[in-house]
Simulated scan of single mutants.
Amino acid sequence: MIEINGVSLAYDVTNILSDISVTIPKGGVTALIGPNGAGKSSLLALVARLQPLQSGAITMDGLSVASTPGKVLAKKMAILRQDNHLGSRLTVRELVGFGRFPHSRGHLTAEDRKVVDEALMLFDLDDLSGRFLETLSGGQRQRALVAMAYCQDTDYLLLDEPLNNLDMYFARDLMRSLRRIADERGKTIVIVLHDINYAGTFADRILAMRNGRIVADGRPDELITTDMLNTIYGFEIPVTTIDGRPVALPFR
């Protein structure tokens, strides 16, 4: 599990996160939701050690994120950031293969290639495997990046807005794949989402943030209510039920 205790973050005089303490259990899908500037990506970046802790502590299965060697953490968690700078002359297969670096140190084995093939198939990239990244759409590149993170074969998969650039078909397809990975392979997926209905459909648990704090924590049916969404987003959002699931209607 991921344990976050007393974590705060500030830039100059601006508070980004304020005394965050929460435990994310092992297994399943946990979604971070909230308005822009709520601190979702900043919290995920601290968990992934993309930036140093200023206060508090974060552990992953008892390992300190701050002090555990990078080689050890790279076999424990994989991270997909919002901003990724890629070499345009890489093929999709080469990019996905980079996910195996913590295991092979750049020299792919037959087992590594098998994992790459599996990731290409899982994320519907087989037909694109020989294409250069510069020839892909934004959505195709995004799927390749998720496949690379998956290919790292870690217990924890941390994804910061992976649905960026994806149309409805591939967004739904990606979320179905992530749900299947969590259920069938025991992965723990922590995902930042802006679409609360994807969170409600595919997540086991939702952490809602606002102004650098966690303002709600619970099952989708507990959080996707008009009153709770008003607390999170600051305006009234009607909620209906479809096939037994709460569905927010933010455009009504």
Rank of each mutant, 00 (worst) to 15 (best):
I2C: 02
A144R: 03
S67E: 14
N15M: 12
R219K: 15
T241F: 14
F202Q: 02
S21W: 07
K114M: 13
L90V: 07
G97L: 03
I206Y: 08
L125W: 00
L125A: 05
L229G: 12
I214W: 02
A78W: 02
V13A: 10
D204M: 14
Y198W: 04
L193I: 09
V47L: 15
E111V: 08
P52F: 08
A199Y: 08
R179I: 06
Y156A: 06
G56P: 13
H107S: 01
L86Y: 00
M209H: 04
A74K: 08
A144P: 06
A66T: 02
V247P: 13
D155T: 14
L128Y: 12
D167S: 13
K187T: 10
I181W: 08
G62Y: 13
Q82W: 03
A248E: 08
L95Y: 11
L50I: 09
R213K: 15
D217Y: 02
D61P: 00
E236I: 11
A199R: 04
D217E: 00
L9K: 13
P35K: 04
D243W: 04
G138Y: 03
F101Q: 07
A110N: 00
M60Q: 06
L158T: 03
Q142G: 00
A208F: 02
A199G: 11
I79L: 06
G106R: 05
L133R: 00
Q54L: 10
D126S: 06
M209R: 03
G99V: 09
R205W: 12
L80V: 10
V239F: 13
A78P: 01
D126Q: 08
D243H: 11
L122C: 01
L44I: 11
K187R: 11
F235K: 10
G39Q: 06
I237C: 07
E161H: 12
A248V: 10
K26M: 08
F123G: 01
T109H: 03
T188I: 06
C151K: 07
E161R: 07
Y198V: 07
A57Y: 10
A78R: 01
I232K: 09
A119R: 01
I79T: 12
A57L: 01
R113M: 15
S55C: 14
L174Y: 01
L46F: 02
L44N: 03
G200E: 09
E236N: 05
T225A: 14
A66W: 11
L95S: 04
L108A: 07
L174D: 04
I181R: 02
G99M: 09
E134Q: 00
S18P: 04
T14D: 10
I224T: 12
Y169P: 00
Q51S: 03
R93F: 14
V96H: 09
A78V: 08
F235Y: 15
R179Y: 07
A203N: 07
D112P: 00
G97E: 10
V247D: 10
P220W: 14
G62W: 12
